[in-house]
Structures are given as C-alpha cells and as structure tokens.
Design a protein around this nucleic acid. Structure first.
Length: 560
RNA sequence: UGGGGCGUCGUCUAGUGGCAGGACACAGGAUUUUGGAUCCUGGUGCGGAGGUUCGACUCCUCCCGCCCCAGCCA
C-alpha cells in the first residue's frame, strides 16, 4: 500500500526530466459555499501531502467566483478544518476574487483577438442553441459582432448599464464541438450581488471555468490536482491558457472519495441541516470535518485512512468499516481506559460491609504501560450493564446469570444469588455475594470464570449523558431510493440514542472537552462541547468490536 | 446513438510480457482480568470473446457494463 499512485508517478517523471524546473507547487481550491467534509479531506491530503513529500508548496485558494453561494463564515470554517487535519499554507492564502481585475483584462485580450463576444440571448435561448449530446449546437445571432462593439458592450456590462441576466460574455470556440464545454462557454454573467470580499465593486462575475485555470497559472501551480468530473473541462482550460499565451500548469484528475452509508454532497448536507434532520453542521453523525471532529475522530486516523485508501481514477465506494478500523486502531493505542455503565443495573453485594469502601488498582492503558495505574472505589452497591445479566442465559452467553460467578474487573468474583423484581416483573436489582479472597480479580484456588464485567460503585459514580450514534442512513447507498422518494427517506430514525443517566467512575470529573477515553468493553467516547461541570456529556466515537453481538445475531438468524 | 473516463477477491488497491500481492470485511483457531487488543489459518478475484506470444491482468481487435458532460453552479 506504500506503492506510488499514478499522480506521484507522473510527478516523479517530471522531476526526473526537469519539467517545471523540479518544482512541485499544488493548491487546494475550495469554494467557500459550505463546510468541508470527508471527501474534501482526501483532496486536502493529496494536495498538501504531495507538496510536502516533494519539498514543494501548497496554496490555499478560495475559488470565490459566485457571490450568491459564498460566505465569510465558510472561509473561517474551512481554514479551521484544514489546520485541524494538520496542514499549513503559511502565508499563501489566496482568493480567486483578487484576480478579477487581471481576469477582466484577459477577457479584453480575448475580445480583441476575436475570440470572445457579448451575447444578448436569454439563458433559455443559449441552452437551446447549445444543442444536445448528440446534435451540434448553432451559432448565436450575436456570434459575429465586431470587436469594437464587443469591447464597448463588455465595458458597459462592467459599469452596470445592463440588467442582471441580460447579457453574457462568451468564448468563441466551436458550437458543434463534441465536448459540450467547448460550445462557446460563458465567461461572464451580470450579477448585482454583493461579494463577500469584493463588496459591490463588481456587477459582472467570471464563471468558474474562466477563473480556475488562470488562477492556477497566476500562482505558478505545477500540478493542478482535481476530481474526475473536470476531465472534460481540461481542453477548455488549455484553450484559454494557450489563447492568452500564459504559464500552463498540468491538470491531473483523480476519483473523489465515496463512503458507504455516507452522503458527501454539499447540497444534500445542507438539506439535512436546513431540514432539521440533524442538529447542525457539526452534528456528530455528519461526515463534515466539523462533525467528525466533534464526534471525536482524530485527524491522524483520517489521514492514515486516506493514505491507505489510495489515489486512482476508478469510481469507488469505500466501506465505512474501513474508516472505523483506522479510528479504533488509533484510539486503541492512545486512549486511557475507564469504566462506565451506560444502562445501569443495580447490584447489592450482600456479604460486603455496609459503611465502607476500598480503593482498587486499575491499569490506565494496557497498550501503554507508561500510562500507569489509578485507584477506583468499590463498595457494597454497584452498577453493572443490563446487557451483562440474563435471567435465562442463552448458549454461549458467558456473563452473569442466577447462580453464576463472574469477575468484576480489577475487583472481586461475585456470584448472583437472587433477582429482585417489581410488580410488573421487571428486574430491579441483583443480590450477589463476593469472595474476599479474589480481591484484584484472581482466585487463590485458581478457579476460572468465563467473563469479566465492568462496573461502577453507586455511591461514587458520576452521572453523565452519553450519546450513541449509528449510521445516519439505513442503506449502504443513501441515494438508492424508490421512485418519487429522495435520499432523506433512507435516514435511519434511530441514528442517535441519548442516554441521560449513565454512571462513570469518579476520576472522569477531571475530563475536559475533547478528551477521549475507552469505556472498557463498550467503545471510545469523547467529551462533547456541550459538556459542563454540572452535566458531563460524552459522544460515542466508535464502538469496540463486539464478538458477542455477532454470535448473538448469528444464533438468532439460525433460529429464525 | 456525440465526447471524456473507468472495469483485478464482498469493498478498496498493487501489478507495466514470466507463480495475481496487501488492507478492510468475512470465517475458523490460539491467547486474554475488556467477548477489546494481539497472534496464526482460510481466496480460482483479473467484465466478455477472439488474436499476437513459448508464456497475456499486462500488447492488439471487437463486444459488454458503469461513471461524467446539454448551469449565466463549482
């Protein structure tokens, strides 16, 4: 997996032959029209990562040519996300809108060369004249305006003499070109909109296609890395750059990142937020970088995941399980272990003294001996997980059951001697006896138990809210919907489960926002920003692999 | 039906004329004071058909399938 991908091979070849004078200079060019998501993370890792590897540079450039969609708040969020991922653009923060004047001058150059013209057609007329995929387009009635008239009209477009949408500037290429992008593409449209950075300086705005290639050229980018759908646009960028006779970067296209059970479309993400299907842009169920960050994902794991997934041109959908694997791998090594009971079942140790407690030794991280030990309190009344007790244990269920003995982690062997129920037959609490000789978790007579359970001392427990997350969508392909439905019909209504009354070991009182822990036998959890001294709130990052769950579902299937 | 791109285990991804490899997932086992972690074991998967060749995932031809393009979005 450390083999070079096709892009790095191309760059190697450039380095070998001295193309671009041995320079590698990339750029990450987001439009500030929404927050970044995991798909962008791939582009970021490629753009910044490659520059870093070859001792080159990577610019951050905002492609802000559409004032209708773009906002300063997105610029701020995007910068935060890139930094969080671990990349640095130093002082190279650029804006395509800063090139508007240059772009305008270049448009004048094309007009003077007879390679661009002002078109008075309506959007509808332009579309009709463009033809279809299989039939050529036809020339606009304004196709053959004189250079003088075009110059005059275009300048007046800029000064605001014409209403919005009344005219455009188009490149004069070939209306019958098999590549639709070459059928006299629009370069400027009239838009009386305030630009988030340029204010009201402009009322004509360049289209992306007219902006992008030249912006890369201005910044002396060597390798313009972008996604597959721009492959068709490359001939147009080449045409512009050649007509202008300016520096020419090389564009290389790669496949974007897709994940099963995940949607990565800024438009649809917006729909989820605005439609109230999720709480906000940083809802921990969202694949936005802000959401992943709040969920507790680490940038290291995301980077490793993206590196190992590779770069190619094949359309692909990566199994979400792979991302989860990289998360667990990273967290397993770094997270301190603690005990927390999510769905508490009260247990009274009947033969344990009433008014006392003791401090037991627990290992902070078995993967990291230097992390040391801590003390945890034990007393007569504790909580265990409801799932860890079955009145009638099925086959292969090793945990607690009437008459059965198990180990409480770092504490004692206990045996269930009685089950207390309420009027309706619900289990209220368990009565158990403990064996004082098993303190710490080992029996002197060497007898074995088949399960070790986590627990929390009732008297010492901290109360916390824990939010459990499942996949936002019920189907691997959220866009797989019946006629007349849209992707929101695949939303899983149970993707968020809030447990308001969980019990945690007391040491967690020190936890700060963003801190990550492994709750033993359950999963990895991260302190949510909404957490406070009065009310601890944890997000589940990812569960631990759960072998029992698999056995259970398999035997259930067998019975069905 | 125009143009551009892509087809290798279930999912990603190496392989560039000489035994098809890795990761995830899955299945089995060992071990374990987390049913975690760790360690073993398990795969006939090259879209199809021809051709070239001693030898083809790789080269050639034809076919099939999937993705993108008809915004004054990016």
């Amino acid at each position: 997996m450390n083999k070079k991908d096709f892009i790095r091979e191309i760059i190697d070849e450039h380095m070998r032959t001295g193309t671009f004078d041995g320079r590698v200079h990339t750029r990450f060019p987001p439009e500030p029209n929404g927050p970044l998501h995991i798909g962008h993370a791939k582009a970021i890792c490629i753009d910044f990562g490659i520059a870093e590897e070859y001792g080159g540079k990577c610019n951050l450039r905002f492609d802000d040519s559409n004032p209708v969609a773009e906002k300063q708040e997105y610029i701020d969020a995007i910068k935060e996300d890139i930094r969080w991922l671990g990349f640095d653009w130093e002082d190279r923060e650029y804006y395509a809108s800063d090139y508007f004047e240059q772009l305008y001058d270049w448009a004048l150059v094309l007009i003077k060369k007879g390679k661009a013209y002002v078109d008075d057609q309506s959007p509808d007329e332009i579309r009709t004249h463009r033809g279809t995929l299989t039939t050529p387009g036809t020339e606009s009635p304004f196709h053959n305006r004189s250079v003088e008239e075009n110059l005059d009209l275009f300048k007046r477009m800029r000064t605001g003499e014409f209403p919005e949408g009344s005219r455009v500037l188009r490149a004069k290429i070939d209306m019958s070109h098999p590549n639709m992008n070459m059928r006299d593409p629009v370069m400027y449209r009239i838009l009386y909109k305030t630009h988030h950075r340029q204010g009201d300086k402009w009322c004509i705005y360049p289209t992306y296609d007219w902006v992008h290639g030249q912006s890369d050229s201005i910044e002396r980018i060597t390798h313009s890395l972008c996604s597959l759908e721009f492959e068709d646009h490359r001939p147009l960028y080449d045409w512009y750059l050649n007509e202008l006779g300016v520096y020419h970067p090389q564009q290389i296209e790669f496949a974007r990142l897709n994940l099963s059970y995940v949607i990565t479309s800024t438009r649809k993400l917006k729909e989820l937020v605005e439609g109230g299907h999720v709480s906000s842009w940083d809802d921990p169920r969202l694949p936005t970088l802000a959401g992943l960050r709040r969920r507790g994902f680490t940038p290291e794991a995301i980077r490793r995941f993206i590196r190992d997934v590779g770069v190619a041109k094949t359309d692909s959908v990566i199994d979400i399980a792979k991302l989860e694997h990289y998360m667990r791998e990273d967290l397993n090594k770094s997270c301190p272990r603690v005990m927390g009971v999510l769905r508490p079942l009260r247990v009274v140790i009947t033969n344990y003294p009433d008014d006392t407690h003791e401090e037991l030794d627990a290992i902070n991280n078995p993967e990291e001996p230097e992390a040391g030990m801590r003390k945890i309190p034990f007393s007569k009344v504790i909580y265990i997980e409801q799932d860890d007790f079955r009145e009638e244990p099925p086959k292969k269920f090793f945990r607690l059951a009437p008459g059965r003995e198990i180990r409480l982690r770092y504490a004692y062997f206990i045996k269930c001697v009685d089950v207390k129920k309420d009027d309706k037959g619900n289990i209220r609490e368990l009565h158990c006896t403990y064996d004082p000789a098993t303190r710490g978790g080992n029996a002197p007579d060497n007898r074995k138990v088949k399960a070790t359970l986590h627990w929390v001392s009732a008297h010492h427990a901290l109360v916390a809210e824990v939010r459990l997350y499942d996949r936002l969508f019920a189907k691997p392909d959220p866009n797989d919907v019946a006629e007349g439905e849209d992707f929101t019909s695949n939303l899983d209504p149970d993707s968020l489960e809030t447990l308001p009354q969980c019990y945690l070991e007391p040491g967690l009182a020190q936890a700060h926002i963003g801190d990550r822990y492994q709750f033993e036998r359950l999963g990895y959890f991260c302190v949510d920003p909404e957490s406070s001294g009065e009310r601890l709130v944890f997000n589940q990052i990812v569960s631990l692999r759960d072998r029992w769950k698999k056995i259970e579902s398999k035997t259930k299937q067998g019975q069905a």
